[in-house]
Design a protein around this nucleic acid. Sequence first.
DNA 1: CCCTACTGCGTATGAGATACGCAGTGAAGC
DNA 2: GCTTCACTGCGTATCTCATACGCAGTAGGG
Lengths: 239, 239
Amino acid sequence: MSEQRPGVELLWGEPKRPSRGPRPGLSLDLIVGEAIAIADAEGVGGVTMPALARRLGAGTMSLYRYVPGKDDLISLMIETATGDAPDLDVAAGWRPAITAWAHATRTILLAHPWMLDVVTSPRVMGPRELGWLEAGLEALAALPLAPMPRFDLTLLVNGYVRGVALEQVHGEEVARQGPFFTPELLTEHGRAADFPRLMEVMETFPFTEAPSAGEDARFAFGLERLLDGIETHLGDTTV
Amino acid sequence: MSEQRPGVELLWGEPKRPSRGPRPGLSLDLIVGEAIAIADAEGVGGVTMPALARRLGAGTMSLYRYVPGKDDLISLMIETATGDAPDLDVAAGWRPAITAWAHATRTILLAHPWMLDVVTSPRVMGPRELGWLEAGLEALAALPLAPMPRFDLTLLVNGYVRGVALEQVHGEEVARQGPFFTPELLTEHGRAADFPRLMEVMETFPFTEAPSAGEDARFAFGLERLLDGIETHLGDTTV
DNA sequence: CCCTACTGCGTATGAGATACGCAGTGAAGC
DNA sequence: GCTTCACTGCGTATCTCATACGCAGTAGGG
């Protein structure tokens, strides 16, 4: 009906099997899987058509027999790495359900940190990714809310998850490459006095290693606070 | 002391003025300002050395007399666009202070949406950006917390702000380029039955325009919830 | 058995980042 | 005032990528 970009078919259409001609030497799954492997290891920056083809033992241009372009490849990577939405036990109540959903989302994002880099741009969402959204809505289905406010809440929680995951991944990356700021830096430039609170923190905890020990706890803590707040609000207004 | 990348000096060092040679035809401020203008208008993707030089009426390679490389340019763009941290009225209490901080952060991010695309990668933070972190810590200074938990809370709120801003910018982008999914798409592919909750939402609110009307409210709402939760938690444990 | 829908992929184009080096410029020092 | 050389602008060249095009080989359908 609409003049959809060709990639939409790859995400939503049936996998078509040609009858004529030579048997394809690669497959979409193979390509996308390898691309994800590269991204997991080196970040999206490492996913280039030549590099990907090399790993697959194919010529660069061969990839274009399977994928219309790199953007579509990225879409497929997201769709695949996202995986199926979790089965939530909605019967147990909205709060455990959305909590499980949030944790599951976080797990995916941390397993494939590059997703945080690419989900930014507007893109076609595939069935799997939409499935997660559906699951989030389902988790909140029991709440006495109109569809749109419920959608808002889902995005709110999703935004929280993404934001904190981004913060963590960023922090880990930074720790890997050396601290992004140190007391020395501030002192050298005579700016230490401008950042007393920060100095205090740095004295307590030098950013020389990833603070991932406490990341899970921080995430869970913040999520609980957010849900507490939502619960309170719902209770207040009985909306 | 450390073998810092040359760009660190640009962010933290004094602007040095050479005495010999011809007067520079451009300036760092000019270049960075123009780069920000491009990014605001077209996104970071539009910021290329040739394009930037063209706008400045200079040769491409001339830019490298002012900036070591593109990465450093991006760092400078962030530092400049970030602006100075707001003066917070800490005396009024931690909650108004951190609320103002969160809103100010959000305002910056929405004014320069490209920042959401680039803050991902680990990079050197400049004094201005650090100033924001300092301000966030200062806002929470009155809370009976150790430095590190206070730092955690600051990052938590920051993560929330970023996440929701990302969600919003993404949504607006999508609205500009056409809806990323429609009831038709689902129906065409016979998948409508798999997404009942989503269909319900789409019937209520077709994603044909940016839902920005309610974005501010949603953000403020979520923030209040998060702070409610924090407040409750602090009250509970009196930590 | 041959036609043609396919496949693999070499080659070419064009964008973009950036190294290198040349030629001009003007304050410092004689 | 003249020379020197720390600087400047920037043309040219190289390298990496994404991707269009087209050729040559392959194999199921008729």
